[in-house]
């Protein structure tokens, strides 16, 4: 399984990629594998304020449903429209075309509290 080194992770299996004051958020390859075939994704509207640990959307797979928890506090800047028409992209390219939202960070320091790749790998090995 692939877990890019340049990402930060949550214990709820989201990843975030930081570029300047913008974070791109998605779910990990492990998470998509556990969920199985994803059929619908519900995402927040642009401009919505979200908080660390708060649910910002849901992923419906054939077998299971899961909330999406935000790794950071901030404002939704962009949502991935492509995955709403083609949710299977989250299964196939969880770190690339399968991203979910982009958030303008309220506090860039928060990112330090997230898991790095080694800590995340340890978490899922349990």
């Amino acid at each position: 399984m692939n877990f890019p080194e340049n990402l930060k992770y949550t214990k709820d299996h989201e990843w975030i990629r930081i570029e300047g004051n913008v974070g791109t958020i998605g779910i990990t390859e492990y998470a998509q594998g556990e969920l199985g075939d994803i059929v619908f994704i519900e995402l927040p509207s642009i401009g919505k304020k979200i908080e660390t640990g708060q649910a910002f959307g849901t992923v419906e797979a054939v077998k299971a449903v899961s909330d999406l928890y935000s790794p950071v506090t901030g404002e939704v800047k962009e949502v991935n429209k492509e995955i709403q028409d083609s949710p299977e992209l989250v299964n196939k390219e969880s770190y690339e075309r399968g991203w979910m939202i982009k958030v303008t960070l309220a506090n860039a320091d928060e990112v330090k509290n997230l898991l790095d790749v080694d800590a995340y790998k340890k978490l899922i090995a349990k």
Partner: peptide
Amino acid sequence: PVQYAGIME
């Protein structure tokens, strides 16, 4: 086994 290649496939 609950799935192999994936439920949809």
